[in-house]
Measured scan of single mutants.
Amino acid sequence: CHSECLGNCSQPDDPTKCVACRNFYLDGRCVETCPPPYYHFQDWRCVNFSFCQDLHHKCKNSRRQGCHQYVIHNNKCIPECPSGYTMNSSNLLCTPCLGPCPKVCHLLEGEKTIDSVTSAQELRGCTVINGSLIINIRGGNNLAAELEANLGLIEEISGYLKIRRSYALVSLSFFRKLRLIRGETLEIGNYSFYALDNQNLRQLWDWSKHNLTITQGKLFFHYNPKLCLSEIHKMEEVSGTKGRQERNDIALKTNGDQASCENELLKFSYIRTSFDKILLRWEPYWPPDFRDLLGFMLFYKEAPYQNVTEFDGQDACGSNSWTVVDIDPPLRSNDPKSQNHPGWLMRGLKPWTQYAIFVKTLVTFSDERRTYGAKSDIIYVQTDATNPSVPLDPISVSNSSSQIILKWKPPSDPNGNITHYLVFWERQAEDSELFELDYCLKGLKLPSRTWSPPFESEDSQKHNQSEYEDSAGECCSCPKTDSQILKELEESSFRKTFEDYLHNVVFVPRKT
């Protein structure tokens, strides 16, 4: 048989008469490798580009789960590009990614509803959504962080984005990388972005840091009482949809009607710091009717980097990364020049730590249904340095008659930039024990000054392991946590139920 035959053949030295091919099969003959313009397919066939392209389009058009959109890589027609490569849609070739590779997620039936953290986790790592997304989240724990972890990498949506009755959302900033909504599939009414009845939605994105392009379709905003109209108009300008909307697409009466839409800028007039305090004062603000001013709200939190936005980490279910302080308005003076500047002394802060701070007014709604208010920009203030805590785990070892090696770990709280350490030492008198000992005694162990690591005695271990207080009263049991108490109650309830079950099964009433 021919060298490319495997198993047997019907005619000697003829690659077209093989029972099976050793390498690849091409047009009725066995070959060692697939010549151009053919590609290896499933490690035994040679196919042309049209064959591989037909497989790709067949799966793409069917949208069946589990099928493969075949691509070409290293002269092979394979189910998908290997790690580190992405497909070129024009020629199906796998090309190296520039940075992290995109991950295209194809949605069944063309859309997916995100109504819980669990459903959001199914899209973790996706960068391109081939379909439409509907966000409908009523509640949950730590929602802002969970949504950002699972949806934060999405850069492109081919269909539309719909935010509907998501009472738990305060902001859409968890879509931190969303840059493009194509609108290839539109919501009824030709809408590519749809926001309806979101009672706590206050911000779409921080438009000073976020760009969003909507290729096709219109915007729809109705019944978002805490979303200011200025935020919607800003989205029109940034996304390129200005002029597409009709009169009733953006409701003037049901958007922002319960919001404090600040239209003035508060400026800080005085800032002073110490290692654990920050004193702030800002310019006074009074609405047209000074009785509408209820006070100020001061927001602050630790910020290692200057990239904080107002609604980071917030949701309507209680999660809030900001510390909020309510401040009463100052006494009002008739003389504008003698107006008191409101302020606040922030206490209990960490030394040498940068804080993000902003302040906003708290006002009631005027009778004319106009909203007044003022808010400052987010500023960054760093507390002063102070003395560091003591170095940890000092170790001293003498390696000769004239040297001592000293080692330690950095302090747990540096409280500033540590530039150097101060080492103090003092000579001590020799131990009298060394002169009084009889060095001729056998088995004498000389006193040693070398360091030995501390260890816990058996008594201390027994005390720590004991669940009861000892007789001397030195140790006591740790208080039980809520989960331990709940577990004990469940076990007790189970024992009672099981005992009742045994009584009912074992003891049967005697027939009379």
Rank of each mutant, 00 (worst) to 15 (best):
I129C: 15
D393V: 12
I214S: 09
T241I: 06
I188G: 13
R179P: 00
L219E: 07
V128C: 09
L227H: 00
A168T: 14
I114W: 01
V381T: 15
K242P: 10
S132K: 07
L265Y: 08
I232C: 13
G343H: 13
T386R: 07
W282E: 00
L266V: 07
L280S: 06
G140R: 06
S333M: 11
L143Q: 15
T254G: 08
L298A: 12
S398I: 05
K209W: 08
S260D: 14
D257V: 09
E146S: 02
K112Y: 05
G313L: 05
A259N: 07
D249S: 13
A144T: 05
N399V: 13
K218P: 15
W352T: 02
N190Q: 12
I232V: 05
C317R: 02
T185L: 14
G373Y: 04
D335P: 12
L123V: 14
K218Q: 02
V397R: 09
L293S: 03
C105L: 02
D206E: 07
L107P: 12
F221P: 00
S398R: 01
T383M: 03
Q199R: 07
Y305H: 12
L227Q: 04
I188H: 08
T386A: 14
I271A: 12
L212V: 12
R176N: 03
E368T: 11
N263G: 15
V128M: 02
G131Y: 02
K226F: 09
R369P: 06
D315G: 05
S192G: 05
A251T: 13
F275L: 12
R124Q: 04
I278T: 08
R370L: 05
R244H: 11
P336R: 14
H341S: 10
T323P: 04
L180I: 14
W344E: 04
A251S: 05
D326N: 03
F221V: 10
L279M: 04
K301W: 04
E231H: 08
A356E: 02
L362C: 06
G348L: 05
I163S: 05
L108Y: 14
T361N: 02
E155K: 14
Y160G: 12
K209A: 07
F220M: 14
E283S: 09
L227I: 08
I157L: 05
P330G: 07
L331F: 10
A149R: 13
G140I: 03
R347F: 06
S171P: 00
L212N: 01
F296L: 10
S376D: 00
L172T: 09
E246C: 06
G318V: 08
V325T: 14
A356L: 01
S321P: 09
R179T: 13
V128A: 15
N307M: 06
I188N: 09
C317E: 08
P388I: 00
I114D: 00
Q403I: 11
N198H: 01
N224V: 02
Q403A: 15
K360F: 04
D249H: 14
L212H: 05
G343A: 09
Y300A: 11
V325G: 09
L212T: 11
S274D: 11
V397T: 06
I188C: 09
Q354M: 01
S274V: 05
K177R: 11
N255E: 06
K267V: 13
Q306H: 15
N211V: 09
P394S: 11
D335V: 13
H341Q: 13
G183N: 00
G183C: 00
M346V: 09
L229Q: 11
R124S: 12
K375Y: 05
T118N: 03
V170P: 05
I135P: 00
S166P: 03
T254I: 14
D206T: 07
N198P: 00
F296K: 00
C261W: 03
T383V: 03
I378R: 05
D292H: 03
K253W: 14
I114R: 00
K226L: 09
K226D: 04
P288N: 07
L172H: 01
C228M: 08
D206G: 08
V397A: 02
G183T: 02
S239F: 09
R179E: 09
S389I: 00
W205G: 11
M297Q: 10
D257S: 02
G243S: 10
E187I: 07
V359R: 00
K301L: 05
K234P: 05
E283W: 03
R272V: 15
S119H: 05
T361S: 12
P329Y: 01
P391I: 07
A144Y: 06
E231R: 09
G110P: 10
K112G: 03
P391H: 00
E262P: 15
W282H: 11
L196D: 03
W344F: 13
E155G: 07
T127C: 08
Q203F: 03
L169F: 11
E122Y: 07
L227R: 00
V381Y: 08
A149S: 06
N334G: 13
D312P: 07
N211L: 12
D115C: 04
A149H: 11
N320D: 02
M297K: 01
D115W: 02
L212F: 04
L349Y: 00
I163K: 04
S260K: 03
P284M: 15
L196Q: 12
L180F: 09
A251V: 06
S158M: 10
L172V: 13
Q306P: 07
D377A: 07
Q339M: 09
I157M: 09
F268W: 09
Q121W: 15
F311P: 04
D315Y: 11
L201N: 01
W207L: 07
A259V: 07
S192M: 03
F290R: 08
